[in-house]
Design a protein around this nucleic acid. Structure first.
Lengths: 298, 298
DNA sequence: GGACATTACGCTCTCCGTAATGATA
DNA sequence: TATCATTACGGAGAGCGTAATGTCC
């Protein structure tokens, strides 16, 4: 017994005529006759009484039709659900974001998801890239967008480059360094430098260049507030200054010429679990995040 | 999307391996691969992540499997119900019985249905053949077993002969007619005759023969009790005397030679609604009634 | 190299359409 | 005779099996 048979039987019962039912099903009359005959032969019971006055289900036919309706509705529901899942309109997404990408994309993306009222449940976790990368590898997060150091390969994740952030030094508008012109290595040496927690090797490289991040912190709100109320400089992408207070109160300064070449930009990666197909909902969220990222990084 | 796809997906998820699932399904590995691929292509979503460690459903796959289980169970239920209906083990049957057939078959048949504990709901209606035949024609009864006069054709029913009852005169054991030897026409004239309500034309024939049913009644218990406590004779089949009190107290006498030929036996007919397929449950009840009828009429 | 899954290819069986044949008012 | 259902027959496609090809340990 196939679903087709149920559809045919239901249509026949609804229309009360082989001819009409066949037409509505897009079949010819003989095809419907044979389909019903085959069904009756399979179940071994006559399902419809034929007469010139019309077609009427027998007791067995009525029993079949009662259940068929529910089954066909169930199939329709299943297909609708799969269509929604395919379209990324349904599902649960657990997203990981590094602190900077979170500041760049989270608010506008969330506004959009809320506004469009889609069926996606999103839970975001903001944290250090290495912590979250481990969660991705363990399947606790569907994906992660963060500044992953190339030299920190993590078992069980796949990465894709999704953006390159230029870096700059951010200083409060009335910072003394602005009055002194472009910051040379000496000037920088006089002020504390704030930034996110970065991989140990990068730390070493920067230290080798004579720069010392005084405050390494994953909370860029904290970093920004400190920069506003002190002489500290922030190493970050200038895009942050367009993302509202407190960074709107900071001005970007070019990095000094002596700044290490491989720290003049930060690479943003999308990390996913190896061998795991991303759900369409997750893909939809990733796409939205990347859109907002492109906007933020113009 | 066909049920086969759901079965395949479920088996694959359960077994966690194409090879094992295919074997359990009685398929070859390539066939299962293609089936799953076709399903994924149709819904447009990857349903299973393949890796050497095994097969794991994606979010979409899990959603499909959740619903698939219910749908497949529903199909199994439907098929079981149809099997039960086909086997006559399930259904509602509304049976009509003439008064005599009712006395002959009802008690032993009901005992059997109750004893075997089948799923058939039987409701019986005992009454005059013509009343019940109308109900059959209107679809209010599934069938009727009664002594239908051939000359009383009713629109919309089909009849089948299911038995021939010899008729006799039944008299109480100490009835005066027994002392007088075989009842001649004259002897009969001296005693009232009781019988069921019979068609008008038969009435006329009997009257033409000089016989007059004094009490025409559809309740054979009443008739039997009257015969026990009076000099009345009952026109009925001798089989009744084997069906317990009060008929066990009556003795059969041969009909007199002058009794009309076409009233020496009564024909029992099965009447069903024209053009309506009898449900297997009804057919089962009919079969049981006919078995008991054969036993009663030896 | 061995244990898997996937692709390639050919066969068969099912299902549908067209045409012919009832059946009934 | 007209309308509807059923039977007869032929063709296209779906699904399976066998065999060949990847692919990862």
């Amino acid at each position: 017994m196939e679903l087709r048979h149920l559809v045919h039987a239901k249509s026949l019962a609804d229309e009360g005529s082989f001819r009409v039912a066949a037409a509505k099903l897009g079949l010819t009359q003989p095809a419907l006759t044979k389909s019903i005959q085959a069904l009756e032969a399979e179940v071994g019971v006559r399902l419809f009484d034929r007469s010139r006055k019309g077609i009427a289900p027998t007791a067995a036919g009525a029993a079949l039709l009662r259940r068929a309706t529910g089954l066909l509705d169930g199939m329709a529901d299943l297909q609708a659900e799969l269509r929604a899942i395919r379209g990324g309109r349904l599902g649960k997404v657990r997203a990981g974001l590094g602190p900077v990408p979170a500041k760049l994309v989270l608010a506008p993306s969330m506004e959009r998801f809320v506004r469009d009222g889609m069926g996606i449940e999103i839970s975001t976790e903001i944290g250090s890239a290495s912590d979250l990368a481990l969660k991705v590898a363990r399947g606790e997060l569907d994906f992660l967008i963060a500044s992953l150091a190339e030299d920190l390969p993590i078992e069980g994740i796949e990465t894709t480059l999704v953006g390159t952030m230029p870096l700059a030094l951010l200083a409060r508008h009335d910072h003394p360094v602005l009055a002194e012109g472009l910051p040379g290595a000496e000037a920088l040496d006089r002020f504390p430098i704030l930034g996110g927690r970065i991989p140990v090797t990068s730390h070493r490289r920067i230290a080798a260049g004579g720069y010392r991040p005084l405050l390494a912190c994953d909370d860029y709100d904290v970093i920004g507030r400190v920069a506003l109320n002190s002489d500290a400089l922030v190493v970050a992408t200038p895009a942050l200054t367009r993302m509202g207070w407190p960074y709107s109160e900071l001005a970007p300064l070019p990095l000094p010429a002596s700044w290490p070449d491989d720290r003049r930009v930060a690479q943003l990666y999308l990390a996913t679990r190896e061998g795991k197909t991303m759900s369409p909902a997750a893909a939809e969220v990733v796409a939205e995040f990347r859109r907002q990222l492109d906007v933020a990084l113009i």
